[in-house]
Amino acid sequence: MIKSELIHIVMLRHPHLYQQDVEHIVTTILGDIANALANGDRVELRGFGTFSVRHRPSRSGRNPSNGTAVFIEEKWMPFFRAGKEIQERLNQKQ
């Protein structure tokens, strides 16, 4: 699902809302999650999952095209851990 599909689904479920308002709501929520992660905070959405940031230290790697050694700088990576409800929903037997 992409952002425009999410906006469309929300609009279908709540026809009393204008498209501009739904776009603003979705953009605001996603922006606030991104800002919290950029500040190093953890975002927990009960029943859905937890977003956090993990540190990856610098290391040496290999260029796959020619095999030469390259230096990979340290970086911070977003990490998502699904909540219990989502895991149960994905793994329910049909």
Rank of each mutant, 00 (worst) to 15 (best):
residue 1 M to S: 14
residue 2 I to Y: 13
residue 2 I to L: 15
residue 3 K to W: 12
residue 5 E to Q: 12
residue 5 E to D: 09
residue 8 H to E: 11
residue 8 H to P: 01
residue 9 I to P: 04
residue 9 I to K: 15
residue 10 V to K: 01
residue 12 L to K: 15
residue 12 L to V: 13
residue 13 R to E: 06
residue 15 P to I: 10
residue 15 P to F: 08
residue 17 L to Y: 10
residue 17 L to H: 08
residue 20 Q to E: 13
residue 25 I to Q: 01
residue 25 I to G: 00
residue 26 V to Q: 08
residue 27 T to S: 12
residue 28 T to C: 00
residue 28 T to Q: 00
residue 32 D to G: 07
residue 34 A to G: 07
residue 34 A to E: 07
residue 36 A to D: 01
residue 37 L to C: 06
residue 37 L to I: 11
residue 38 A to C: 00
residue 39 N to D: 13
residue 39 N to R: 12
residue 40 G to D: 04
residue 40 G to K: 06
residue 40 G to W: 09
residue 42 R to M: 10
residue 44 E to F: 03
residue 45 L to N: 05
residue 46 R to W: 00
residue 49 G to N: 04
residue 49 G to F: 02
residue 49 G to M: 03
residue 52 S to H: 05
residue 53 V to W: 05
residue 54 R to E: 10
residue 54 R to Q: 12
residue 58 S to N: 03
residue 60 S to Y: 11
residue 60 S to M: 14
residue 61 G to A: 02
residue 62 R to T: 07
residue 63 N to I: 11
residue 64 P to Y: 11
residue 67 G to N: 14
residue 68 T to F: 06
residue 68 T to W: 02
residue 68 T to N: 05
residue 71 F to D: 14
residue 71 F to S: 15
residue 73 E to G: 15
residue 73 E to Q: 15
residue 74 E to M: 10
residue 74 E to F: 11
residue 74 E to T: 12
residue 78 P to E: 14
residue 78 P to N: 12
residue 79 F to S: 08
residue 80 F to I: 14
residue 81 R to Q: 12
residue 82 A to C: 08
residue 83 G to K: 03
residue 87 Q to V: 06
residue 89 R to Y: 03
residue 90 L to H: 07
residue 90 L to F: 13
residue 93 K to R: 08
